[in-house]
Amino acid sequence: MTAAGTFGYGTEFNSIFDIQKLGAIVCKGTTLTPREGNLQPRLAETAGGLLNSIGLQNIGVKALIREKAPAWSSWRVPVIVNIAGETVDDYARLASELEGVTGISGLEINISCPNVKAGGAEFGTNPGTATKVTTTVKTSTSLPVIVKLTPNTNEIAQIAAAVAEAGADALSLINTVKGMYLDITTRQPLLGNRTGGLSGPAIKPIALSMVYEVAGAVTIPIIGCGGITTANDALEFIMAGASAIQVGTATFNNPHAPLDILEGIEQFMKTEAIEDITELIGAARSQANEKIGRAEIRDG
């Protein structure tokens, strides 16, 4: 699937490739009222990565329902709406607004945006508030609920376990890693918002280890995200325990990246004679357990 904020509303890609081939589209992070986003500059390229401080510029949930959802209802590919609030009540109201709207197949709760002052990652760094947001959204919607987690915490496994307990249907991780870029001529941070969120290949190892860790803490499906650029990257996340993956920043350099990755996974399965992708989910974990098990036996 495509990662929120890197695929617009899907409609932009209609003329580029057959988006119906995707597993799902996660649309731009959406708030109750339209948001103008942060000051320029909003982008800075870094070694192997991209720092952004867009600040959730979006048209707001009402315009999304009016202008975007009608097109989605005729699509075969499910569209998941990423929702972001400043208060717990915002999330409840967003979920209620989207309830029963045709063309929407799921919600992804954004409790992990590092670029907004209120809400955002505040909710995602504390198991208590993460639980509260999840419970609230679950009681306000009949749609499947994915909770998107932030890497900007030491407690990702605890937070994952808490939101799973609160009824989340799946987890997506990770959102961007908080970072900064300084302009040595002005001696000031380059980004208008001073700090931003790092994405791209630079964060892949962080994302992968977090997916691996969280896969040991929950039984609900995990959607791996963070720097996935090639089919091999995607396979690593699946082997670490992800049931699905999201492609984000890679799409900027190669608009066909999501399809290229799907085709690469199919090719790998053919070469390795794998009938069902589920055979690969968590493969690294079970082998690791075996290794640990063997080591223990030897030590014993």
Partner: peptide
């Protein structure tokens, strides 16, 4: 402008004109 995607999806190159973004 500093651009990310060129396709209108990343909202990196937003500019304010007299009647909106």
């Amino acid at each position: 402008a500093r651009m990310g995607c060129g396709l209108g999806i990343c909202y990196g190159c937003t500019v304010r004109i007299n009647n909106g973004l």
